[in-house]
Structure formats: C-alpha cells, structure tokens
Nucleic acid binder design. Structure first.
Lengths: 222, 222
DNA sequence: TGTTTTTTGTTGTATAAACAACGGAAATGT
DNA sequence: ACATTTCCGTTGTTTATACAACAAAAAACA
C-alpha cells in the first residue's frame, strides 16, 4: 500500500485531502489491494456491487455480451480510473456490465457501503469525498455521451474518423496511442475487424491518417 | 410556480426536503420557469452551461448532429428529468449536445453556479441536494450504458429487440408506450426509418411483437 | 535461433442495410 | 367536411458491411 500512497492521494477519488483525511478514509473504506491477471473478471453482469475499485496498475475493459455471444466493449479504463462507481451509487442496482482485466491489473478495493454507513455523511472528509465522486460521475457521463457519438456514426469510415478525432482532441495532440488492439477497437466500435483494417489502410493511402501498430497520427485535414 | 410546487418537491432533484429547505434552495437557485415551443433549442453544442433545467411539462430530445447533418438522438427526457446536470457539474466543460424541445415544454431553470458559490456547500439543504444530484448522475450513467447496449447491436432486428425488451424491463410490463415516433426511434437507434418499419412489421408477422402506433406489446418469447 | 502463436491486412462473396420513390393512413388545420 | 400536411409501411435497387479464408508480419516462447 505504501508504494502507491502518493498515487492514491492524487487520484481523482481522494484528490484534495490531507494525509489525515486520506488515512482515515482508507480505514473507513477498509481499503485493500487486489490483483487480477489478464482476462480475469473483476465484476460480472448481475453482481450486486458494494465496492468501488480504483485502478492502480494495468487496464480494465468494461464489456457486455450480446445474446449471440458477440462482445461489446463499452470502454477501457486505466490507471487512476475507478470501476463500478455508478452501480454502488445507485443502491440496489445490479451490474449490467462485466469488468475484465485487459492486462495484469492491481486495484484498490474500497468498501463503499461500509464507509457510507459508518460516516453517515457526517465527517468532513466524507464531504470532500462525495464532491470528488460527484465530479468523477459527471465526467464519466460526458465520456459515455462521447462514446455514443462514436458508435452512432453510420459507416465504418465515419466511426473511425469520429473516434480518432475525438481521441486527438482529448489528448490535445494529433499523434497518440490507442489502448486497443485491432480486435478490441472493432468490438468498441461494433464493426467487423477485417473490414475495419481494410478501411484503416484506405484512410492511410488517402493520406488522412498514418499509423503504426497502436500509434496513430492524424493529418491536418481530419 | 405555485402550481408546480408539489411536483417540484417530489422531483428527484429536491426529493426529501422540507418546505423551508425547498423554498430556500429555490431562492438560492434563482429559480424561474421558462417555456419552449416544440422544436426550440434549449441548449446548443458549444454552449457553456450554468443552469440546470428541470422539466415540468413536455419532453426534450438530447441530440447531436453528425458532420453530414444526420441527426443522432442520444435520449429523450421527460417530466421530472433534468437537462445538463453533467455539464454544470463538470465545470468549464462545453456542452457537446443539443437539447431540443420535443413538445411544448415548461422547464424550471436553476442557476447552479449562483447556488454553489452562495452556499459554499455549507448549508444543510445543500448537503441533501448534492446527495440527490449524486443519485441522479449515477442513474443517468447506467441509462447511458443501457443506450450503448441498444445501439451496439449489429442488426436492425437485434437493435429493435434489445431496445424493446430493455424498455419492457424498465417499465416492468410487456406492453408499453414508447416516447418516439418512427423517425425519432430510427434516429435513436441509428438506423434507416423505412428499413426499421419493414423489420417491425416482420417481427409482428412472426408474432414476436404487436404494435399499434406507439403502443408496443412483447410476446412471452422475446 | 527456430518454432509456435497471435495479430493484422487483404481479397472475394453473400447478405443486410441504406436509399429513393411512392401510396395510403392518420393527423392537423380551416 | 374538406384540404393539406405529416407520418408510416412497402417495394426495388444500390451500396456497404459482415463473413470466411488466407497470407504476411509480429510477438511470444522454447
């Protein structure tokens, strides 16, 4: 835990707290570290969620399986992101998603219910906390709307261009790495991988984008 | 304002407050009622948002225009829902959506920034408020994930069946009205209206669903 | 280093969806 | 009650995408 102390302190969940507040909260949360191997399920559809998970290392895919076993990737989370906040915040709501380690992953497990029942929202650190969580939720909301825009384009080409230019804007740079391999990107945009590959190389031939593995570069025209 | 007092009091935003707290907050929010005609824009992409809007009457579509002018409907909001909470909560974030009155609509305009700067989160009613807003945001989050599932299906048929069965589950009934006309539903699911109509009648012929105008009924098999 | 496995790009074919055009039904307005 | 407009379903045609199969490249492993 020591090793990650500074990281935790600067994470969006605990941002702005002093050492005393942070230590108190971690105790209150009954915080502990847990490891997941690549491919392991952290949360399953139908689970009743009582913990928040703060990602310390690695990456996590938020997924859903459709009837026919086709995989939908909702989003990929990484270091400092948290999993499942929306579900613990909406009491008595079952998870409607899977959370799968996309890498060997270390998470900080926070028992949200224990913490809220203990504090009764009374202590000052809890006030900072809920403000932080509020900010996080609103940002997640906007991210989800963004994702809806990405997948709502009608052609493969438009999905790719929308996704890539949204990423560029988010990173404030025309060249950036994406967290997905080709199959995962296809599952994220809900398109066929091979058709996507084809379209990507077409876009490259036309000079709209350049890419090498997961590193993409957008030309000024995009 | 009097006319809507009870409705406001029981809305998710102000839920659980006593009369004094509510009155104080409405003042603090500089609350006022505003009317919009069908088709009028309540919020535009790029606007910097400082107000929350609580819908008192009518309905509002949250939309986005793609490059080619194609319309994407993210969701439809109705009475007691609020607009733009995520944007005011994420300070300094421009709206990336349009909010368009889908009907003649009455909203309660709440100046969020004024309220938060005045109260400095100090007063007790503000604590109830932020807890309410927190709940609302988390539910919106889950709704958005649901919507992503709906539009992430690969065929028109699967989109319709997923959407309809999700609605049925939400309403806890196999027969229900949808808030969309055909064109709006197509824009919500990002598919062609005529192709959708065709698929709907096919589903009806196969006995999976029945519908009449906006009233849908799912057979047990769905 | 050589072998195996995974990932990515390419192509041809089958299929599903978009699109355009239209007629009828329903709703709206006068 | 009639005229006008909007909405909905149907059909044929064009187009884009899924799908399958495969080869090349890269990565992982021994």
């Amino acid at each position: 835990m020591e090793k990650y102390y500074n990281q935790i302190k600067n994470s969006p969940v605990f941002y702005g707290m002093n050492d005393d507040e942070l230590k108190g909260l971690l105790e209150c949360f009954n915080a502990r570290i847990k490891n997941f191997e690549e491919g392991e399920m952290i949360i399953r559809q139908g689970d009743r969620i009582t913990n928040i998970y703060l990602i310390l290392e690695g990456a996590v895919n938020i997924e859903k399986d459709s009837y026919w076993g086709r995989r939908i990737i909702i989003t990929q989370l990484s270091v400092n992101d948290n999993i499942a906040l929306a579900f613990v915040a909406s009491k008595n709501t079952e998870s409607n998603i899977d959370a799968v380690a996309a890498d060997d992953t270390k998470v900080l497990v926070l028992n949200y219910e224990k913490c809220t029942s203990m504090c009764q929202n009374a202590c000052t650190r809890h006030k900072v906390l809920i403000n932080n969580l509020f900010d996080i939720l609103s940002k997640e909301n906007i991210e989800l709307i963004q994702k809806i825009e990405n997948v709502s384009q009608k052609s493969i080409r438009d999905k790719l261009l929308t996704y890539l230019s949204n990423e560029a804007r988010k990173r404030k740079s025309n060249s950036f790495e994406i967290p997905f391999n080709r199959q995962d990107l296809a599952d994220y945009l809900n398109i066929d991988r091979s058709a996507m590959s084809f379209e990507l190389s077409k876009l490259q031939k036309e000079g709209l984008i350049k890419y090498n593995k997961n590193l993409f570069q957008l030309s000024a025209r995009v």
